[in-house]
Design a protein around this nucleic acid. Structure first.
Lengths: 349, 349
DNA sequence: TTGAAAGCGTTACCAA
DNA sequence: TTGGTAACGCTTTCAA
């Protein structure tokens, strides 16, 4: 039984007194093997619990069937949910998944890519760190012939395929929703300007203001970093303006929660004094006080879609394409001023 | 340059007109190599971007430097946070990590273990699915000589090492806290009884009641499944009792959030009508209304500790040990009845 | 129908 | 100081 060590074809061949090649063929139902041998081989393989050695296989074929994921972190629900979607599709297609986290550090991101290349992943799915402004570590993957697909925080759309949310439109609709439900001065809290999703969402926000013929007030836009503390900081700054906003569109869930804290500390009521909308898909939006209106991502679908896109690229390199996954606005209490109640959408939970 | 394909030692050797062994030695600073050759080899390796093929290595050494993780899911903050801890330590020690999710299904769990074995992980870190009552798929790992370490939801502590929280004590202290802050009838919502942490936490809960000389009322214990809906269901049932509780100790965060929903639907005030404590370490506990008092796990430390434990077992099989990671009670608003205000602990954020 | 041998990329041992 | 060779587990010619 060879306890401990793994069983190899050689072990089986020895025991049965036949050659390794015969065993190999018998196991894969090669037509040129006698039924009797096949049965004996299979029986023993089963009894001894034989499993092909994946490293020998990878060495031989140079296709380890592993895809690499690079994300900012795994604890943010948005990312872990997308990973779940990726993982499902990968498994269905016989791939394993290996996850690396940049923790939003440019330096760590480079190391992650290096690690993934070193384990010879067949392809990579990535979401940029907030710090990243240089893409050399990604473009150099082309020389190694490792396909790369981005999601959410993307770059170089002419070079790499990507999956994103309908950022412009979602921000536009969210802003319009605020303006339609009693808010007059809508502020925007985002992240650093070099990040594509920041620009897109701000774009949608500004477009809505334009549609409403509201002059743009630069003081109402706070863009620094996407994080809880910056949400808090941004809201504090906005609230201390001589002419403060009566609504905030926060670009991420953590920003929204930070802003919420600031608003409560200022003893303002949500939504009557300040309306608030977040970008999130977390069920926690439902539990906060008041329940948070939020642009909701179809994270699972996003994950599945990126993975499909990558698998396609692995099979056959194609020119880059971009897929947009629609979001929807889950209207809860934080956005509708009380003299403006509208019936909740069916997405409200 | 060999675009596309990976560079091998052979490629370097060919180009330099020396043998493969020499290249191999030069690259790893073998003392028995002339400085001149070493330099030339290293220069070319760098220029051509040579990376050792990990599969050849794994094949040779039979130590792929991969550890497998089996968890119920990745989106629950508790698990993703633990994974982060595991991952940090694993990387520090040159290991990669591969994650599989059982989605709390026994059948899927068996498949996950099978997958991990097939990729030849050197060891496995696992947290049981809620459905699991049979451990054959784990004990059979012993025959394969693959070390296994559990965390949180564990089994067979005499066979496998494990890392757990101080479940009995934490539940005891939480219950005492409720009784000390105005609650008279404390209920417990847990999961299925075959799960060790359920039994332990219930044990701590009952012990606290005994210390307070409060007779045990079976109606106040609801144990079915650890999930949001069951938290809701349990709370509904408890609240409809002829003699309902005035406090609930929920065994997980999702149970607590479900219970919170039920309580609000019953138009009861937290904590004045019903106090509520959850088991969680999420920052979201701070955002809910009211902020949730919760037993807080040191998830990162738990992850690091399991990983260390596993690495030790990989290096040298040792007899199983159990490590207990202390929790602390973060007292917030949901547990202290208003006529009983105590100063918040320093853990309150 | 079966077996022998080469090859995938690397290391380690033995010769030179 | 170097080179040749065997070995890791498997597949795939090529021969028998």
């Amino acid at each position: 039984m060879k306890e401990g060590k793994h069983i190899s074809l050689k072990d089986l061949a020895c025991e049965l007194g036949i050659s390794i090649s015969t065993v190999s063929r018998a196991l894969k139902d090669s037509p040129e093997i006698s039924g009797e041998v096949r049965l004996r081989v299979k029986a023993l393989a089963k009894e001894w619990n034989y499993r092909p050695n994946p490293f020998a296989m990878s060495l031989l074929k140079n296709t380890p069937r592993i895809i690499g994921i690079l994300i900012p972190d795994i604890v943010t629900h948005f990312y872990s949910s997308i990973i779940t979607g990726i993982d499902n599709i990968a498994r269905q297609n016989g791939y394993s998944v290996i996850i690396t986290s940049s923790y939003d550090s440019y330096k760590a991101e480079i190391q992650c890519i290096e690690d993934l290349v070193n384990v010879r992943v067949e392809g990579i799915i990535a979401c940029l760190s907030q710090e990243t402004t240089d893409y050399l570590h990604f473009t150099s993957l082309e020389d190694l012939n490792i396909p790369l697909v981005f999601f959410d925080r993307i770059c170089l759309p002419d070079v790499f395929s990507s999956v994103i949310a309908d950022n412009i439109e979602s921000a536009r609709l969210a802003t319009l929703h605020l303006l339609n439900t009693g808010s007059k001065r809508v502020a925007f809290i985002g992240g650093a300007n070099h990040i594509e999703i920041v620009r897109q969402r701000k774009h949608g926000y500004l477009q809505a203001l334009r549609e409403y013929r509201i002059p743009i007030d630069k003081d109402l836009v706070f863009c620094k970093y996407m994080g809880y503390s910056e949400g808090y900081e941004g809201a504090c700054k906005l609230l201390s303006l001589s002419n403060p906003p009566d609504a905030i569109l926060a670009m991420t869930d953590s920003i929204a929660f930070g802003a919420m804290k600031a608003i409560k500390e200022h003893r303002l009521r949500i939504p009557d004094d300040i309306s608030l909308i977040g970008y999130t898909d977390e069920m926690h939006s439902n539990y906060v006080d008041p329940p948070l209106t939020a642009i909701t991502h179809q994270t699972h679908k996003m994950g599945q879609t990126v993975c499909h896109l990558l698998l396609k690229q692995i099979k056959k390199r194609e020119k880059p394409q971009q897929i947009i996954i629609p979001t929807y606005l889950a209207v809860r209490e934080s956005s509708v001023k009380n003299n403006q109640r509208v019936p909740p959408t069916k997405n409200t939970i």
